[in-house]
Design a protein around this nucleic acid. Structure first.
Length: 423
RNA sequence: GGUGAGGUGGCUGAGUGGUCGAAAGCACAUCUUUGCUAAAGAUGCGUAGCCUUAACAGCUACCGAGGGUUCGAAUCCCUCCCUCACCGCCA
């Protein structure tokens, strides 16, 4: 969430920067300011009255010790007490309202984030490789998957409904090989610590990373236990340090985690899309960093580079685009998307989204660190997919398909997969 | 799931209704002294909010969480959570 002081001191600048986003947040900013004024007035009065009560109660204690009658003065305190209750209720209501409002205001786009309103205005940052040529018509991964017995969408639908899939045989093994390939790369080459977190988390975690309260309809929820299925490993992994004060030596924190991700995709365009492109459950290796504010921008570049390395090693053509202010996520200050080329689709697929959240998430989850002067400061959090598996699977299978219907396994993956081709 | 014990500041640990935000020790920081790879002493040392300021200071809240009793709660009552031990069950 945003710093209330920033809103208090420079509301117009805050509004101006939010105006570059999609949606109208100016009225929320006004409302927060109004509530903040109310809250502080009530808070000040409450504290003054509490001070009075503390002082007088102390006097009562002393008087009683001296055997004096205190009934009159006790009655006086009782009046103060009921006033404290009254004004305290006001203060609490205002406080809760202020927090709600702050939680529903998105992050300020970073100055370095290009201004724009739609995805069409996202600048392309760089391109790696070229679109491969085929002397045959490249097939879609669903066709290849069915022919090679790797993907079974009917079984997925039968067991769980639409947008679920069953990987089988070489498909299941390829998925598993990709997961360990990604984890090994990031842990041994890029310095990340491997994390295997719970897949069910408490509501506080989702508030911390920003999915709640606004996007509650997108996550699966177990009502009986009030636990949520994670939509991304970002949630449990970033929240590992919720409510903590990290020593400076601990930074930067670098975590890599493989988890399945669960998303309801309610009202989402493309949910009916054929194949693996948009599923309710998919695998992903996520990279998470916690850094000092000074280094977060540089860390965003290295995080993105770490994710790109995956595609380079696999020999997959991709491009990196930068999201404009109208297209970045709720909590993000700046985001790069990595899109891999899928020949069977004839389009680029987003396989990674690398963002810095500035101090937005850290503030929500009360995460701090001690700086060199021993002062508590708010660190920056970053995350990026390294990468999403289902779409990587699509790009890989479609890119390396051969005229005879077999699929070549790229050199870098053969050790993990244990064979040079499928079919 | 059952029974028992317990949750106090970075750690250990005292504190069962009234100058307790909390003794003491450890750790840490600064200073002093003796001196040498250590010792002694002094001082400081939680978090957040409010109000203010050039700065200091002041006030309020926080002793697992939330309620309650009371003029006053770390301390009494209720609910919940967590940890540990043993038992049961179990991948």
């Amino acid at each position: 969430m945003l710093d209330i002081r920033l809103i208090r001191d420079t509301p117009d600048q805050v509004k101006q920067r939010l105006a570059n986003r999609n949606g109208d947040f100016a009225s929320l900013v006004d409302e927060v300011q109004a509530i903040d004024t109310q809250r502080r007035a009530a808070e000040t009065e409450r504290q003054k009255l509490q001070g009075d009560r503390n002082r007088i109660s102390k006097e009562i204690g002393i008087a009683k010790k001296n055997g004096q009658d205190t009934s009159a003065i006790e009655a006086e305190v009782r009046v103060i007490g009921s006033r404290i209750e009254e004004i305290g209720r006001e203060a609490d209501v205002a406080d809760a309202r202020q927090r709600d409002l702050l939680l529903s205001i998105p992050n300020l786009p970073h100055e370095a984030c290009p201004v724009g309103s739609t995805a069409e205005e996202n600048p392309e940052v760089r391109v790696w490789g070229t679109k491969p040529d085929y002397d045959f018509q490249p097939k879609d991964h669903t066709v290849l998957g069915a022919a090679l017995g790797m993907l079974d969408f009917e079984a997925g639908a039968k067991i769980s409904g639409s947008a679920f899939v069953v990987y089988r045989a070489a498909g299941a093994k390829l998925e598993r090989a990709l997961i360990s390939f990604l984890l090994d790369l990031h842990t041994t080459q890029h310095g990340y610590e491997e994390i295997s977190p719970p897949l069910l988390v408490k509501a506080e975690c989702l508030v911390g990373t920003g999915q709640l309260p606004k996007f509650g309809d997108q996550v699966y929820h177990s009502a009986a236990d009030d636990l949520y299925l994670i939509p991304t490993a970002e949630v449990p992994v970033t929240n590992l340090h919720r409510d903590e004060i990290l020593p400076l030596e601990r930074l930067p924190v670098n975590y890599a985690a493989y988890t399945p991700c669960f998303r309801r995709e309610a009202g989402s365009a493309g949910l009916g899309t054929r194949g693996l492109i948009r599923m309710h459950q998919f695998d992903k290796v996520e990279l998470v960093k916690i850094t000092t504010p000074e280094t977060s921008m540089a860390e965003l570049e290295s995080l993105t580079a770490n994710a790109e390395k995956v595609l380079q090693l696999l020999g997959l053509h991709y491009r990196v685009i930068e999201l404009c202010t109208g297209d970045i996520g709720f909590g993000s200050a700046k985001t790069y998307d990595i899109e891999v080329w899928a020949p069977g689709q004839g389009t680029y697929l987003e396989v990674s989204s690398c963002s810095t959240f500035g101090d937005y998430q850290a503030r929500r989850m009360n995460l701090r660190y001690k700086d060199e002067n021993g002062k508590n400061r708010i660190p920056h959090t970053l995350n990026g997919s390294g990468t999403a598996l289902a779409r990587l699977f699509v790009a890989l299978v479609e890119t390396y398909q051969q005229a005879d219907g077999t699929i070549l396994i790229p050199e870098a993956l053969r050790g993990h997969f244990g064979a040079a081709k499928i079919g």
